[in-house]
């Protein structure tokens, strides 16, 4: 910790990252490997997705972190609340991705407290873009972090979804997006099932279908674990805030869908 007296000198820069850069630069140190070093095996987050529905956006992720062909964690949470009206879904190398989500959350809260006002959703999305760009040298050495950012835009009155590339390029998607090793499979699934103005129940169904499809096709993505009782993380972000979808509700939808799939399989066989 710095001597707080020294913090008194600067007039109200509301950025927490700038504050760290001035006073505790070691906390922003980038992870960098020697050029040409053998890439290490690190835990990767696999599938996260976001989709728009009638009241805002749904964000969801499976619970598995994968290290090469091994399961690194069965219970990782990939959707993190950034503030009351937005969230980040982390995909890529889990360590730096989780750190980025934590720093981003602090950045937004710090801004809100210093300024006494919230950043616009666009402003938050741009800030995340800068943070991904800061990570570019590490990304070039394999430590890739590519989150999804989604939230409710109070000024426009709609849910909005942003995806990124490793250079921090920001692209808005109006309907849905999925990222990570199972991202393409989840997107294929969403492409067939997503419709405009889905109700909450339908949105949950479509979300879980996509995660089941991703787990089906991608070895890295974890399916629902009925033995251990581990189910995907699902959050909703609406005008009234960031909410958890209760695990019981997720479990019920998962069981219904699995039963339907089992029945269809039987009918076909």
């Amino acid at each position: 910790m710095d001597d707080p007296l020294r913090l008194f000198g600067e007039s109200g820069n509301p950025s927490f990252i700038d504050l760290l850069r001035c006073h505790s630069p070691h906390m922003l140190q980038r992870l960098e490997a020697e050029p040409g070093a053998e890439p290490l095996r690190m835990p990767h987050g696999t599938t996260v997705l976001a989709l728009r529905y009638r009241d805002g956006v749904v964000m969801a992720g499976d619970r598995q972190a994968t290290e090469g062909f091994q399961v690194a964690s069965r219970r990782i949470e990939k959707i993190s609340k950034s503030d009351d009206l937005s969230g980040v879904g982390i995909a890529g190398v889990a360590g730096p991705a989780m750190e980025m989500a934590r720093l981003f959350q602090t950045e937004l809260e710090h801004y809100e407290k210093v300024e006494g006002d919230n950043l616009s959703l666009e402003g938050k999305a741009n800030k995340l873009s800068q943070m991904i760009r800061m990570n570019l040298p590490a990304a070039m050495q394999g430590l890739v972090v590519v989150p999804i950012f989604a939230g409710f835009d109070e000024r426009m009155g709609v849910g909005r979804i942003f995806k990124y590339d490793v250079t921090g390029g920001k692209y808005e998607d109006t309907d849905y997006w999925a990222q990570g090793s199972g991202g393409k499979d989840a997107r294929d699934s969403l492409k067939k099932r997503w419709r405009r103005d889905l109700g909450r129940d339908d949105a949950l169904r479509v979300t879980i279908e996509a995660l089941l499809d991703a787990a089906d096709e991608d070895v890295g993505t974890g399916g629902p674990d009925l033995v251990r009782g581990i189910f995907p993380t699902i959050k909703t972000i609406t005008r009234s805030g960031f909410g958890d979808v209760p695990e019981d509700e997720i479990r019920r939808v998962v069981e219904t869908l699995l039963n339907e799939r089992a029945k269809a399989e039987k009918a076909n066989g």
Binding site: M1, D2, P4, L7, F8, G12, F16, L19, L20, H23, S24, M27, R102, L103, T106, E109, H110, K113, V114
Partner: peptide, 17 residues
């Protein structure tokens, strides 16, 4: 107001570290 902002900074840096 200066003291308040210094306090927010103190708290956020500590909570993050």
């Amino acid at each position: 107001e200066n003291l308040r902002i210094a306090g927010v900074r103190h708290a956020d840096v500590k909570g993050y570290s």
